[in-house]
Design a protein around this nucleic acid. Structure first.
Lengths: 199, 199
DNA sequence: GTCCATCTGTACCCTATGGTACATTTGCGG
DNA sequence: CCGCAAATGTACCATAGGGTACAGATGGAC
């Protein structure tokens, strides 16, 4: 069998870049062909479902990455403090170091009736729940954890908007550091039994 | 002269809804025609520049609204506390009551080289600066104000992402209330001379 | 009522779009 | 070296895309 020119992982990464740069509706097959160096034949061989399947693959890849690097630490047995540090490290690595975008967020804003709506909701819901659970394990009340988790997600997603709007990661990185410190402080306070409120 | 079927304001609002629902690239002239009830003739009469001019008009309208309802209170002579309340009221009204989206944020995420890049940057930069200036007038140090302003913008933009992802405004409204309270607390603390840190 | 600029719908144009068909190449298993 | 399935490029298709041309409708000014 003829070897594929691109490993599937690389191919999906290229696709991710195209959708990132042009948006789903804005990414034409010609763009995709240029970005991947592949003709339609190869693309439709790899993704018989066409553009929609390509985007689905990118989303699935993103979901996997998050499952491994973000959700697993939060949901797993790691101590809450370490889990949250791991989450922020992963987020920083993903969005700053690797220069990715949150395609979930972009698709969420872009179109009302995207075929990916369910995936988007599931992604954020899982992230939120994992973070809440982790904070609760760290001794935070559920109500307080709920607020903190929503705030954290919003800061990250909004940070990415500003990241792109300002064409620089400084503001985004500052937001990450700030929220990381806030969560650390809350957990530390709970740990030492103090009833201090930070929200 | 024949009277236009739609006031320009209404027309722009309809356009806003279409771009909101489909994204810029995803909104076809057919969609726009359906949403406005106008044929191409009328549309191109009102916007000779086509789709791009339509989107520019929507953005200009949005910018005007923000200038009036958000920037003016912050930049004007209003007491900082009242100005910030006004800002949150306007944001709530705009995004929740009126059900609008932040087209700036959506466009920011969607495509790298959009012709609206400069407008997007300008919008967020002005908002950020106005908020910083207002907080500084309220006695907050510039560095602290800078952090708080970035955080506030990110929470609002990220809140909109979650708003749409969860298909409900509850989380967004909670975020608004939370951040409003936080800024109020900071200003109140400064006002009473306390050195309390909240970030 | 007439006039004329404004406004509007329709028919049309060219291009780019997503998608298909298929002949050709590639390279592992034997 | 051969066979064969995987992988690929090219030519092609039907349609929808944005945009233009233009004839007709509209309605205030006079």
């Amino acid at each position: 069998m003829a070897r594929a020119r691109l490993e599937r992982g690389d191919l999906v990464r290229r696709l991710s870049e195209v959708f990132h740069a042009r948006g789903y509706a804005g990414a034409s097959l010609a763009d995709i062909g240029t970005a991947t160096g592949l003709g339609k034949g190869s693309l439709y061989h790899a993704f018989p479902g066409g553009k929609e399947e390509m985007a689905a693959a990118v989303l699935a890849d993103l979901a996997d990455r998050f499952a491994d690097q973000v959700f697993a630490p939060l949901e797993g047995g790691l101590p809450p403090l370490a889990a949250i540090e791991a989450m922020f490290d992963a987020v920083h690595r993903h969005f700053v170091t690797d220069g990715h975008i949150c395609l979930f967020g972009a698709l969420s804003l872009t179109s009302d009736r995207t075929p990916f709506r369910a995936r988007i909701t599931a992604h954020f819901r899982r992230w939120h729940q994992a973070l809440v659970a982790c904070l609760v394990r760290g001794g935070v009340t559920r109500a307080h954890a709920d607020g903190l988790a929503g705030e954290t997600l919003a800061l990250i997603e909004g940070g990415i908007v500003l990241y792109r709007a300002f064409a620089g990661s400084a503001a985004f990185e500052a937001l990450l550091a700030r929220q990381r410190a806030r969560l650390m402080a809350v957990l530390a306070a709970r740990d030492s039994g103090t009833a201090q409120r930070t929200g």
